[in-house]
Computed example of a mutant assay.
Amino acid sequence: MEFECSTLSLWREALSSYSSRIQSLNKPNLVSLDDFYRNELPSLLHQRNPSPFITTSELSDLMRWKLTRGKWRPRLLDFVSALDEAVVKSASQKAFQALPDISKAISELTVLKGVGPATASAVLAAYAPDVAPFMSDEAMVAALGNSKDYTLKQYLLFANKLQEKAKELTAEGESFTPSDVERALWSGAVGAKLLSSESDPDLKTDKSKNPNKRRRKR
């Protein structure tokens, strides 16, 4: 899925294929985790208005979703699962109250150990998909050309591009949120990988991976 594409039908097709792409990955619990993240969690958060917050358990499940849909990093899950309930509640309340200032909202969440800008964006996207899209690898590559720089500055650039694309697609007569754009980009990228693996089962997609490289929290 090319980010510059302006053909509404292609975006609609990519977005509608999201659930089948989730299933096609055949990852343990991903279907149920995705249902939790996209349906159950947003409902729980909005039920807590006017002072919404996320619990440590919910944040752990969100992290499981993020790592299962993307790249598994168990240390991040360990960090998040060990967070104090009161600290998570306080940080997330401040973050949600800061919206639509996503810079401040992200900063409020990244004080939590194991929570970087990408995980923070997933928390915000669950509550405000029309404001803050999830910072996924696939959408980062599509929108910005790389997925290496997981900083607040990079997220703000990313979010702005997806907000603008959502406005462009909505102007075409369809209702698209920045989070819809992210899911469509993810779906398109996963679909392309599946086609590549089917045509060449020996294709190695991680040639550039350096196992010794230290990674920052995301």
Results as ranks from 00 to 15, higher is better:
Ser16Phe: 12
Lys165Asn: 13
Leu194Lys: 15
Ser51Tyr: 04
Glu172Leu: 13
Pro52Met: 09
Thr177Ser: 01
Lys193Thr: 06
Met1Thr: 08
Leu162Phe: 12
Met140Lys: 02
Lys148Gly: 01
Ala120Trp: 00
Ala86Val: 15
Val80Glu: 09
Leu25Pro: 01
Ala143Phe: 11
Thr7Gln: 04
Leu185Arg: 09
Ser24Gln: 14
Trp186Met: 00
Pro117Ala: 04
Ala159Asp: 01
Ile102Lys: 00
Gln154Ile: 04
Gln97Met: 10
Met135Ala: 12
Asp130Ser: 01
Glu85Arg: 13
Phe36His: 10
Ser147Asn: 08
Lys217Cys: 05
Glu13His: 15
Thr56Ser: 15
Gln47Pro: 06
Asn39His: 11
Tyr150Gly: 04
Arg183Phe: 09
Val111Lys: 02
Ala118Gln: 02
Leu157His: 01
Ala171Leu: 14
Asn146His: 05
Ser199Lys: 15
Leu195Glu: 15
Gly173Leu: 04
Asp78Arg: 11
Ile106Ser: 03
Lys66Tyr: 11
Met140Ser: 11
Asp101Tyr: 07
Ser32Cys: 07
Asp202Asn: 08
Trp65Asp: 05
Leu124Lys: 07
Pro42Phe: 10
Trp11His: 10
Pro50Asn: 00
Met140Trp: 03
Leu8Val: 05
Asn146Phe: 06
Tyr18Asp: 11
Trp65Thr: 02
Cys5Ile: 09
Asp34Ser: 01
Arg183Val: 03
Glu13Ile: 09
Ala143Val: 09
Gln23Thr: 08
Lys148Trp: 06
Thr110Lys: 00
Val181Leu: 03
Trp65Ile: 10
Arg75His: 02
Tyr127Met: 08
Arg73Asp: 08
Glu108Pro: 11
Leu76Thr: 02
Pro28Ile: 08
Arg214Leu: 11
Ala189Pro: 03
Leu157Trp: 00
Gln154Arg: 07
Ser81Glu: 06
Tyr37Arg: 13
Leu41Pro: 07
Ser16Gln: 13
Glu198Cys: 14
Ser199Asn: 10
Thr205Trp: 03
Gly70Ala: 08
Asp130Thr: 00
Val88Arg: 12
Lys89Val: 06
Val141Gln: 11
Thr7Arg: 10
Ala82Asp: 08
Ala120Met: 03
Asp202Ile: 14
Glu4Ala: 10
